[in-house]
C-alpha cells in the first residue's frame, strides 16, 4: 500500500486517492487535430522506472496531485501540484 504525502493533508494511505494516469499527457489545445487527441487519450510510454502521474485526493482535500513514482519499487520521490514540476535532480 502506497503512502502519499499530500501537501495539504499530510501523509495518507493510497486508498484515499484515485489514480489518474500519466501526468505528462496534457490535453491538447481545442484546435488540435485527431492525432494529437489520439495520443493524449491512448498513447502511453509505460516506463519501467520513474513515472510522473496524477493522483486525485478523493477522500481528503479533493485536490489533484502530481506524483513522481518509480513503477518497479513504488518509491515516491516527489509530490506537487498540477502547475509544479519536480526538481531536475530528484532521483
Amino acid at each position: 500500500m502506497l503512502r502519499i504525502h499530500c501537501p495539504f493533508c499530510g501523509l495518507r494511505d493510497e486508498v484515499e486517492f484515485r489514480y489518474r494516469g500519466d501526468a505528462t499527457a496534457r490535453r491538447p489545445a481545442a484546435e488540435a487535430n485527431e492525432e494529437a487527441f489520439f495520443a493524449y487519450v491512448y498513447a502511453r510510454d509505460n516506463p519501467r522506472g520513474w513515472h510522473l502521474e496524477w493522483w486525485l485526493h478523493t477522500h481528503g482535500c479533493r485536490q489533484v496531485l502530481k506524483v513522481k513514482r518509480h513503477t518497479l519499487t513504488h518509491e515516491i520521490a516527489w509530490v506537487g501540484l498540477p502547475a509544479d514540476a519536480p526538481p531536475e535532480d530528484a532521483p
Binding site: C9, G10, R12, D13, V15, E16, T58, H59, G60, C61
Partner: peptide, 9 residues
C-alpha cells in the same frame, strides 16, 4: 482532517 474512516469519507 477529511479522511476515510471505516470506508466512509
Amino acid at each position: 482532517a477529511r479522511a476515510l474512516i471505516a470506508q466512509v469519507t
